[in-house]
Amino acid sequence: MKKTVIDIHNVSKVYNPDTIPVHAVNNVHLHFEQGEFTALVGPSGSGKTTLLNIIGGLDAPTQGSVIINGTDITHLSANALIRFRLHHIGFVFQSYNLVPVLTARENVEFIMLLQGVSKAGRERRVRELMAAVGLSDKMDVRPAQLSGGQQQRVAVARALASKPQFILADEPTANLDSHSAANLLDMMAQLNRDEGMTFIFSTHDARVIERAGRVITLVDGSIASDTARVETGV
């Protein structure tokens, strides 16, 4: 039996509760097991990003709880949440993912530096991760000199650097051409398969949905469907 990584109980998020309430997420119950490759899909405004932010501890739910490896993150203080994210959650954003003044190597190393990993440990892990994302030859290049796809690969390497329990990716292929998107997905699928890394995507991209092992559809903040596939691209 696979280990449950994330448990979401009755989570709702209401913006402007005192004026014009906007129900972004409505009574969502979900759980994610280790090694899942899940796509959160739905039209714009359906609550995908809000749910992803709540799972990542970037936004607090109006009600309900989010339990990650036994820790209810909705009860953590702001500083404890930052520390929790640093050690347990990897993020890949749609754009503006990397620090522009740091090289690819330094961007990946940065997270481990915040974690207090030794210099030798950081250097070893950076080499491993840059090789894993196929960018060993771009270690000392700044983001501006990398293509969009290469930047997203560095972002994935950075997300993995902290050895998180799972990676949240918010529309990671939105700004990529087909070839770069396919390469990025191949790489993440391989990490999922080889290292059992859990991925949760919010996406509109059919290419991501096709490769997902589980597709959760949100409509108006509620789960409209939650489908596990037998054959996936993983």
Binding site: G56, I82, R85
Partner: peptide, 16 residues
């Protein structure tokens, strides 16, 4: 702004 937000999201303490 976005960069600051991203760094805090990744786990950089605000004080840092």
């Amino acid at each position: 702004q976005r960069e600051f937000g991203m760094l805090v999201a990744l786990g950089m303490k605000k004080i840092q």
